[in-house]
């Protein structure tokens, strides 16, 4: 199983498993963290796969990201790369 942790003073992440994908709800608590998530978003918006991760920015400031099952690992790797999460490990 893939496990990750995050600094809850900067961000709050919850996830819900669907049939074909996982919905991450991301509450962002600092501008620095918002910029980091924008970099993750840019990575997925800019690649040639149009359905790997859908980013939805909501009026209240939270992000909803729907990630296809086979793209969850790349998504978390990018989140780790841009320091949106603190750790990522197989357990």
């Amino acid at each position: 199983m893939l496990h990750y942790s995050f600094d809850s003073s900067l961000v709050e992440i919850t996830e819900q498993k669907n049939e074909d994908d996982v919905t991450f709800t991301i509450q962002i608590k600092s501008e620095t963290m918002r910029q980091r998530w924008k970099q993750v978003r840019f990575y997925f918006d800019d690649n040639k796969d149009y359905t790997d991760a859908f980013f939805y920015s909501h009026i209240d400031g939270h992000y909803e990201v729907i990630v296809r099952n086979d793209a969850v690992l790349p998504f978390l790797l990018q989140a780790f790369r841009y320091r949106c999460i603190e750790s990522l490990a197989w357990k």
């Binding site: 939805y56 920015s57 909501h58 009026i59 209240d60 909803e64």
Partner: peptide
Amino acid sequence: AVLMQLNEKDEIT
């Protein structure tokens, strides 16, 4: 209802 809550302004990079 969820779609109506999207913030389109955030799309302007």
